[in-house]
């Protein structure tokens, strides 16, 4: 049995079709990542799984339970961390945790041990008397995660949990997720950071209300069959223009201060030399590059269009 089962899921809000026939499964004990731009339908999907929104059509089951009929059962075995920080800023770390423990009816006897474990995980122990409002962004997210984990849920749903968090805290956050996974928890997580896809067992690329590609990160990257180069230069925009005029160029993407250029035919060293002179030295550096999930994603989107 799959932990989460989504078939032909459709949902519209007025004129906006948020989900247009979404299909995917999350296996028992898996860490599944949903990746896609804003407005792809990730949040709507998660809210349906968490029984907060009713689907228009299609079937959604969590641990075999139907989101339409067995809400209360689903809610008690599910942990949800919404996109926005949604704890009580005026309550302390400990008060927040206690409140959620009571909300999910964690028995007194288990509560202490569970809290100790979560404090250990999140390293929030020393801050337990601090109001949540005074925590740093990363600590807030860890507190929210702890609150979602307080009742030892079987399925954990996280909506962009690392959004706006510094890189070090993000890394730490993923480490926590891995240890939660080791406890046997199934995790569905969405992210806008493509580099985080590598942390997941499987990744679904979400676009315009559908999963457009799905596989392990390694397999997804293997789909990208064109030779890829990472290119630096004095003027990226001019370089981009230049490569557009080269017939063997398959795609060009800008990533911060570098260009990712893929080719339909492996370029030779002589080709690069020639390009360098043609750009008048504007082309400064080129290196073969392993495709990232983002390259794959953009590639898939090109195909979709």
């Amino acid at each position: 049995m799959n932990a989460i089962e989504v078939r032909d899921l459709k949902k519209r809000f007025g004129h906006i079709e948020a989900l247009r026939g979404m299909n995917f499964q999350v296996r028992e004990g898996e860490l599944y990542g949903l990746i896609g731009p804003d407005g792809a339908g990730k949040t709507t999907l998660m809210r349906i799984i968490c029984t907060l929104v009713m689907p228009d059509a299609g079937e959604v089951r969590v641990k075999g339970l139907d989101v339409r009929q067995q809400r209360t059962k689903i809610r008690s075995l599910l942990g949800y961390m919404p996109q926005r920080f949604s704890l009580y800023p005026d309550l302390t770390v400990e008060q927040n945790l206690h409140f959620f423990a009571e909300l999910f009816q964690v028995p007194e006897a288990e509560r202490r041990a569970r809290l100790e474990m979560l404090y250990h995980f999140s390293r929030l122990g020393p801050f337990k008397n601090r109001p949540a409002a005074n925590l740093s962004g990363g600590m807030k997210q860890k507190l929210a995660l702890s609150c979602a984990l307080i009742h030892t849920p079987q399925v954990l749903v996280l909506d962009e949990p690392t959004f706006g968090v510094d890189p070090v805290s993000r890394q730490e956050f993923w480490e926590i997720l891995h240890s939660v996974q080791k406890e046997g928890t199934t995790i569905l997580v969405s992210t806008a950071y493509m580099d985080e896809a590598d942390e997941c067992d499987r990744v679904g690329l979400c676009f315009q209300g559908r999963i457009v590609a799905e596989d392990t990160p390694a397999n997804l990257k293997r789909r990208f069959s064109y030779p890829l180069y990472r290119v630096r230069g004095s003027n990226l925009f001019r370089l981009q223009e230049f490569f557009r005029s080269i017939p063997t160029v398959h795609s060009i993407q800008m990533f911060g201060d570098v260009l990712h250029v893929s080719f339909t035919r492996q370029p030779r060293a002589a080709d690069w030399q020639a390009w360098q002179t043609q750009t008048g030295g504007g082309l400064q550096e080129w290196k073969t590059e392993a495709p990232s999930i983002e390259d794959v994603f953009l590639e898939v989107l090109e195909e979709e269009k």
């Binding site: 968490c50 029984t51 907060l52 209360t72 809610r75 008690s76 599910l78 949800y80 919404p82 926005r84 920080f85 949604s86 704890l87 009580y88 800023p89 959620f100 909300l103 999910f104 009816q105 609150c147």
Partner: peptide
């Protein structure tokens, strides 16, 4: 406004 209501709602309360 703070979204805490949603957080409460996913509980069986």
């Amino acid at each position: 406004e703070t979204g805490t209501l949603e957080q409460i709602l996913v509980s069986p309360v």
